[in-house]
């Protein structure tokens, strides 16, 4: 197949061009916009004068929201890992002939709209819902205590919404684990949990790394959960700030600076995480 060297380029070109024009170019545009003079507006136009101050302004005003976004996303990622791992393990190593059906069932809830499922949680966790009354009756929640409009609700929503992104990579790497290795560990008198910790967990690490990244990245930029499940105070995430700055206030330079910082922070976090996960053998 080496005779026609241009064939692969021809096949790649349309898609690669699409990504270059509508993904890469916008990133440069975003960078440029973040350096515009903030005194302009959409109507009067912006002056490009390399206004680096946009970054200082954006960070000094909105660092709490940045911090909150990464904290919420990190907690949600850990929770999703703890919840998704047994499910992925059960499907990959215990389900036998039910494997395909269970896999379909993992994906199925996500055919219902993201927004509608999040709104459904507002109904479940709402102040007058039977679930909240139940928690109040057994005194887990104080009288008049609420779940909706608290940071807890937002983290819960984030955990729920990105579960398949955690489950599927975990499943893929657990499926490759040879079950004879687990038996071998048992034959060599390891307790079941030790066998899991020393054999299965290390082998599933690629899935853990992929799953945590695929959960953390969208969770840190999300603003739907914060908007629908959160309150006015203590739940605003950086996505909410960027959305409002662009679409309500029309403050393009500040908003672009925020967006750019979010992207940069994620790239740095991801790169250092992958590097650590890759080198430290993860035991």
């Amino acid at each position: 197949m080496t005779s026609k060297k241009w064939v692969p380029y021809l096949l790649l070109a349309p898609g690669a061009l699409w990504l270059a024009i509508f993904f890469l170019t916008p990133m440069f545009n975003l960078g440029a916009t973040s350096l515009y003079d903030p005194s302009g507006s959409l109507e009067s136009g912006y002056v490009m004068n390399g206004h680096v101050g946009n970054y200082a302004d954006a960070l000094s005003e909105y660092w709490p929201q940045f911090l909150r976004s990464f904290t919420f996303a990190a907690i949600a990622t850990v929770l999703a890992l703890v919840i998704a791992y047994p499910l992925a393990y059960a499907i990959a190593l215990k389900a036998g002939k039910w494997k395909n059906i269970l896999l379909v069932l993992v994906i199925a809830p996500f055919f219902t709209s993201f927004l509608l499922r999040t709104l459904a949680w507002t109904a479940i966790l709402g102040d007058n819902s039977s679930f909240v009354h139940f928690l109040q009756n057994i005194h887990i929640l104080p009288e008049g205590g609420r779940i909706l409009a608290t940071p807890f609700a937002v983290v819960m929503g984030l955990t729920y919404n990105f579960l398949p992104f955690m489950t599927l990579p975990l499943f893929t790497s657990l499926e490759k684990v040879d079950s004879r290795l687990i038996e071998a560990a048992g034959d060599l008198y390891s307790k079941p949990f030790t066998g899991f910790r020393r054999v299965v967990l290390p082998l599933s690490m690629p899935g853990v790394v992929a799953g945590t990244l695929l959960t953390f990245i969208p969770a840190s930029g999300d603003y739907i959960n914060a908007q629908l499940l959160g309150g006015i105070k203590n739940t605003t995430m950086i996505g909410n700030v960027i959305d409002r700055a662009f679409l309500e206030r029309g403050a393009y330079p500040t908003a672009a600076a925020l967006s750019f910082v979010l992207m940069a922070a994620i790239v740095i976090l991801v790169a250092s995480y992958v590097k650590r996960a890759g080198t430290d053998e993860l035991v």
């Binding site: 690669a16 990504l19 270059a20 509508f22 993904f23 890469l24 170019t25 916008p26 990133m27 545009n29 975003l30 440029a32 916009t33 959409l42 990244l213 695929l214 990245i217 969208p218 840190s220 930029g221 999300d222 603003y223 950086i238 996505g239 960027i242 959305d243 662009f246 393009y252 908003a255 672009a256 967006s259 750019f260 979010l262 992207m263 994620i266 790239v267 991801v270």
Partner: peptide
């Protein structure tokens, strides 16, 4: 080039594309 869009938060993709169109 194919991996990057999957690793970008939607809010960044959406807003950057908006700046291009504008």
């Amino acid at each position: 080039l194919l991996f990057l869009p999957m690793a970008s938060p939607e809010v960044v993709m959406g807003s950057s594309l908006l700046t291009l169109f504008v």
